[in-house]
Structure formats: C-alpha cells, structure tokens
Amino acid sequence: MKIKLKIWRQRDSRSKGEFKEYHLDDVSKDMSFLEMLDTLNIKLIKQGDLPVEFDHDCREGICGQCGVMINGIAHGPLKNTTTCQLHMRSFNDGDTIHVEPFKAAAFPIVRDLKVNRSAFDNIISSGGYVSVDTGQAPEANSIPVTFEEAESAFDAAACIGCGACVASCKNSSAALFTSAKISHLARLPQGDKETSTRVVNMVNQMEEEGFGYCTNTEACQVECPENISVLNIARMNYEYNKAKVLAKK
C-alpha cells in the first residue's frame, strides 16, 4: 500500500522543528510501524538524506523505549499498544500519517522523534524502591503475600515507563507513572513500610522535573500500553495526603 508521511524533523531541543513530507509506495500490511520507518530510513540514506532518528529497542512492547505520536495519539490508533506493536494493517492504502515526538517540557527533544525521558529515572531515584541491600533479605516465604495483593501489585508494576501517559495528558502530568510505582510498592508488605516518605519524595520530585498536575481526565490509562489503572493516582493522592496530615514535623 501507499502511505504519505508527515514526520516531525528537529535537530535538537533548541532548534525549531517542522513536519516534512515523505512518500512510501511499497508498504506491506504485515510490517510493524517501526519497520515502515526502517524502510523509509533506508530510502532516505540512499538518497543522501539524514534518516529519521527514533527510539526503539526490544520491538516487543516491553522495554518502553519506543513511543511517538501517530496521527496525534500516543503510540497510534490502537489502544493499550506500543508503537512497535502497531502494525500497518491498522492503516489504509493512501493514508496520510502524522508522526510527532512525545512533547512535554520535562521530555526535551534529542533529535527528530527521540526524546530524553531521564526525568522518569529521577522520579524513581527519589524513592521508587524498597530500601533493602543485597544479602539482607529474609526467606522469601516468611512474609506471605496474598494472591490478590500480588496480582494488584503486579498490575501497577507492569508499567514500562514509555511516557505515553505524559504525552497523552493535557497537563503533561506524570501522575500515572509515579503513582504506579507508589502503589506497586504500597500494596506489598515489603514495600509498604516506606510508603509515606516515598510518596512525598516522589511527588516532590515529579514537580521538580517540571511535570504538570493531574486533573483526572483519565486519558493516560486509555493510551497506556499496559492499561495501568488511574486508581493508582487516587492511591498516590491518598498516601500523599495521609503522609502530609500525619507528618510529625
């Protein structure tokens, strides 16, 4: 099938970007979206142009490195699907596809469709862990975790950190990402001990990184590849409010 592409080209975070138009005539329906971009890039390189830089790695929807706005939607038209798992069968012959990077002040553009998401790492650094050193762990079965606790912790822990939640949010809020980690750990006895310090530190860090506030539009869950629940955000708010109300100093 034939596809017209309008791809955002931008040299770096300081330059101005714009849509550039490209045409591909031999796109197969079985191609993944990224394979379609590969095909374009080979064509561009052979023409002597610079290829479109985009982030990707595992191409099976788990590493979270890929992610672009496709026709104005994070990761494209399919819900709960990463860019790498989107296939060209979701498009029609003759379609025009707009491809833009995730945009948020906290995600500066590196080049073209590549953005820097290290703000997410900084949020995790500020408290998204259990403070246990190697060697300190007790026997695994000594603290039972019920099936339901483990399953609901997993639901939150499944986040792949791609940033689609931020990109889909009109406030550019990282609430879904941050809250997923907070509630993953708060739901397990191993992690719950540190919840109150964790939540305050992570929420503060989230603001420091320049993300916006959550106003519960719930767009994030719709576009989240792992369908992380927005109720995690409520859990984060609960833990945050509780920590603030009960603060001893």
């Binding site: 695994a140 606790e149 822990a157």
Partner: peptide
C-alpha cells in the same frame, strides 16, 4: 529471597 524483598510481585498461591 532478594527479589521478593525488593518487591518483585511473583505469582502467589491464595
């Protein structure tokens, strides 16, 4: 033991 202490949500029995 280490992974469980870190909060890895392994599959559990009821």
């Amino acid at each position: 033991d280490q992974a469980v202490a870190q909060g890895v949500p392994f599959g559990r029995e009821y």
